[in-house]
Design a protein around this nucleic acid. Structure first.
Length: 156
DNA sequence: GCCAACGTTGGC
DNA sequence: GCCAACGTTGGC
C-alpha cells in the first residue's frame, strides 16, 4: 500500500532548489521518535512526499515541491558523528536509534502552496500540518488530501 | 525576534 | 510515574 507524506525543512538549511540540484538526498538529522517511526516503519520506495518549507518568511511557508522516497530507512550515521550538529551519544552503529530515508526530486512548485491556503482549503481541516502547534517534521498525508493538493493550480 | 506549543529530561 | 524545568520548533 502506497503512503503519502509531508516532510519539513527550513529552506535556509535545505530547500527545494537544493534538492533539484542534488537530484536526491539523505533525509538525516531527524531526532524525533514519532517522525523516525514513520520513516522506519512505514515509508517505502515510491511513496509520495510533499516537500515543505518551514520557518521561512511569511508567504514562503508551505509546500514547495514534490519528491518521492527512493530508498527505504537505514541508520542515520550522522547520529554518531561527534562533529555533527545532530550528534546523539546514545546512538552507535551496533545500536542505531535514528534512521533516514533517501528522497528524489520530482517537481518544484512554481508557486509555494502556502500554509495559509492549506488552512483555508475545505477538506484539509484534519491535515496534520494545519493543526495548531503541529511540530512533527515527518507526517502522514491521506490519499484524499494528497489528491486534493495535487489538483491545485500552483503546480502548473 | 517573539513567544506559544510541544517533546524530553531528570529529580523526587 | 509525576511533573517542573528546560530546549526546540515554527508561525507570525
Amino acid at each position: 500500500m502506497k503512503h503519502y507524506w509531508l516532510m519539513k525543512t527550513e529552506p535556509g538549511e535545505y530547500s527545494i532548489d537544493d534538492l533539484k540540484k542534488d537530484k536526491s538526498t539523505g533525509w538525516d538529522g531527524v531526532r524525533n521518535y514519532q517522525a523516525r517511526n514513520f520513516m522506519r516503519d512505514q515509508m517505502r520506495v515510491g511513496d509520495g512526499v510533499f516537500f515543505y518549507h518551514s520557518n521561512a518568511k511569511p508567504g514562503a511557508v508551505g509546500i514547495a515541491g514534490l519528491a518521492k522516497v527512493c530508498k527505504a530507512a537505514y541508520p542515520d550515521d550522522t547520529a554518531w558523528d561527534e562533529n555533527d550538529k545532530h550528534f546523539d551519544p546514545k546512538s552507535n552503529s551496533e545500536n542505531p536509534i535514528w534512521f533516514r530515508v533517501d528522497v528524489r526530486f520530482v517537481k518544484k512548485c512554481p508557486e509555494v502552496i502556502t500554509l495559509q491556503k492549506l488552512k483555508a482549503t475545505p477538506g484539509l481541516e484534519k491535515m496534520v500540518v494545519t493543526q495548531k502547534g503541529s511540530r512533527l517534521s515527518v507526517q502522514p498525508v491521506s490519499p484524499d488530501e494528497w489528491e486534493l493538493i495535487l489538483k491545485m493550480p500552483e503546480w502548473v
